[in-house]
Amino acid sequence: MLGKTANGLYWMFRYLERSENTARLMAAGQRIALTRSHADDEWASVLETTATLGPYRARHGEVTRDNAIHWMLCDRDNASSVLAVVESARNNARLVRTALTREVWESVNESWMILRNLLSQRVGERELPAVLTVIRNRSAHVRGAFAGTMLRNDIYNFARLGTFIERADNTARLLDVKSYVLLPSAHAVGSSLDNVQWETILRSVSAEGAYRMTYGQDVRARNIAQFLILDRRMPRSLAFSVGKLVDNFGFLADAYGTLPPSGKKAAALQTGFASASVDGLLDSGLHEFVQGFLRDIADLGAQAEVDYRFYD
């Protein structure tokens, strides 16, 4: 496979993952904002989680709901807006068209046509939930076509690397931004978080139901941290994402005959998770842990680009 193709697949799936995560964050954000007196603070928090608060402020200054929604959905000045990333995903899909099944390509192309149309103008607060649902559904549609029709070879593995590096990054950012919610109460043994706060976090990763299944009604910061960081059953947790990275580096190593440095980095991250405890992480500082993890994931991605010759 061409290095360029691996690169295109990797980024196509990073962008698709990002569009879906942004939609989820916004849906949770809107819900929470409705219950707050300082609603715009919640939008600032969402912007921070998408790592675009700085550029947003540079352009718009004050955070307002309408500007934030527009910025994250439709603004072409924001390279991470849903419209921009769906367009980037589709451009990457065109670039790697020969590596995709017709169904996957058509699904991505159709997603782009639908969303380009939907996001061609400002989305009002009333339409927002429906628009966000379409974004998530389109991502699910592509994922379905991908899971159902793609050969499990290196093409598949590079796409998966993109998906899980992006997902690990996004979940880690959410944890970081919300660490102020988790931290003060984390050590207060037995204290529960207020409904609104925990809902934000769990909704942002579509995990309210999954959490209840695992912990019942006992909502605690420690459990949420355990769930989003270390639980290998939870598909948006850091441990799950790292596990998938290790698996896919492993499949590539089987096909190519060697495990390159990026694969070894992933394995080291996984080993770290295996011996970690949530209490230890909280004791030594959630923020520091997450910052370290974000660095590791970024390094891993950069190393994979070198190892698999994404660029000249």
Binding site: L2, G3, T5, T98, D154, R309, D312
Partner: peptide, 23 residues
């Protein structure tokens, strides 16, 4: 077959070679 652009290719060992994930 592969779809290549100029920057995927270079002269190497007397041939024109494409940059793949494995060299």
């Amino acid at each position: 077959v592969e779809l290549v652009e100029g920057h995927d290719l270079r002269v190497m060992d007397g041939r024109v070679a494409m940059r793949t994930t494995q060299g």
